[in-house]
Simulated scan of single mutants.
Amino acid sequence: MSDVLSELVPVLLLTSLAVVVVLGVAFVVGVRRGKHAGVDVAWGLGFVAVAATAFAAFSGSGDSGRRWLALVLVAVWGLRLAAHIANRSRGKGEDPRYAAMLEKAEGDPSRYALLHIYVPQGLIMWFVSLPVQVAMVVTGGWSAVMALGVLLWAVGFVFEAVGDLQLSRFRADPGNKGKVLDTGLWRYTRHPNYFGDACVWTGLWLVAASAWPGVLTVLSPVAMVVNLYAGTGKKLLEKDIGDRRPEYADYVRRTSGFLPLPPKQRQR
Rank of each mutant, 00 (worst) to 15 (best):
F258H: 12
S16D: 15
L167E: 10
T15D: 08
W212P: 08
V39P: 01
V11P: 01
T139Q: 14
G60T: 11
K235V: 14
G62K: 06
A75I: 12
M101E: 13
D173I: 06
V180L: 07
A70D: 06
D164S: 06
C199S: 11
G24T: 07
G91V: 04
K104R: 14
V200Y: 03
L79S: 10
L5G: 14
Y118H: 02
L261S: 10
L114E: 00
D63P: 09
A147I: 14
G60H: 11
L23W: 11
W142G: 07
W205L: 00
V4S: 12
P109N: 09
H191D: 06
V138I: 13
P174S: 00
A57D: 03
V20Q: 07
P221I: 10
F195G: 04
G24S: 00
A249F: 06
S59H: 15
L23P: 04
M125T: 15
A82V: 04
L69F: 02
G141L: 08
L114Q: 01
P120S: 09
F159Q: 01
S256P: 12
V28G: 08
R32K: 12
Y98F: 15
E7L: 15
L206M: 12
R253Q: 11
L71V: 13
A223T: 14
W205Y: 13
L151H: 09
L73E: 00
V180D: 05
F170H: 08
S168H: 13
V207E: 07
R171C: 04
G233T: 01
A223R: 03
G93I: 10
V29E: 09
A144S: 14
K235Q: 13
L130S: 15
V48G: 00
F159A: 10
W186D: 04
D250T: 12
L13M: 15
A82I: 04
R190E: 03
L206K: 01
A54V: 05
V132N: 03
D3G: 13
T189K: 01
W212A: 15
L5E: 13
L115F: 15
G46P: 05
N176I: 12
G46H: 01
W77H: 02
V41D: 04
T217E: 09
R32D: 05
S6T: 14
F159W: 06
Y248C: 03
G196A: 05
R90M: 05
S220Y: 02
R187F: 06
K177C: 07
A75K: 06
V31Q: 13
L206Y: 03
S220W: 02
D164R: 03
G196H: 07
V180C: 02
W43D: 10
L81I: 01
L151K: 09
G107L: 07
R244A: 12
D63A: 03
A249G: 06
V252E: 06
D95K: 04
F47N: 11
G196W: 00
A52Q: 01
P260R: 07
S61P: 02
V162R: 14
G141W: 06
R169K: 13
A135V: 08
